[in-house]
């Protein structure tokens, strides 16, 4: 039991050390996926505009408050609309966007397969 709690304590302290780095990584991950609305084709992460810099702070603060990536994205969608996300959500607006390429792939495969069978007969 004593060993086990020691183990937990070590684990926790390791976690605290790495949490700082994790937070920065999470922040980068989120901001890379956000469009800098006043730039042309740049993510918030890549931009140094006023807007992007403020948004980086907001994301940072939200992470500190314990928000998850999804919650932060939802918060920003509420402010700016889905336009701000580079990774479009899978919802009724985007079913076709995500599925159509895959359908085309399957269709193409089916056509090729059919032809091959027909010819080989």
């Amino acid at each position: 039991m004593k060993k086990f709690s020691l183990f937990i304590i070590i684990l926790l302290s390791l976690n605290i050390n790495s949490s700082q780095a994790d937070e920065i990584e999470l922040q980068n991950k989120i901001t890379k996926n956000l469009r800098c609305l006043i730039c042309q084709g740049q993510s918030v992460f890549d931009s140094d505009s006023d807007f992007a810099n403020s948004l980086k702070i907001v994301v940072r603060n939200k992470i500190d408050e314990g928000f998850t990536e999804n919650e932060i994205n939802d918060f920003l969608i509420q402010k700016y609309g889905e336009w701000i996300l580079y990774d479009p959500k899978f919802n009724k607006n985007t079913y076709l966007l995500w599925l159509l390429p895959l359908l085309i792939f399957l269709l193409g495969g089916a056509i090729i397969f059919k032809k091959l069978i027909k010819i080989n007969k």
Binding site: R35, E82, W83, Y86, L100, P101, F105
Partner: peptide, 26 residues
């Protein structure tokens, strides 16, 4: 097909439902 749909889909969506979305690297 992926590149084509990713590029023109936002235009179509905006015309049809006037919703703006971004399709980016992810």
């Amino acid at each position: 097909a992926v590149v084509l749909i990713g590029t023109v889909y936002p235009i179509f969506l905006e015309v049809i439902s006037s919703e703006n979305i971004s399709v980016g690297p992810p």
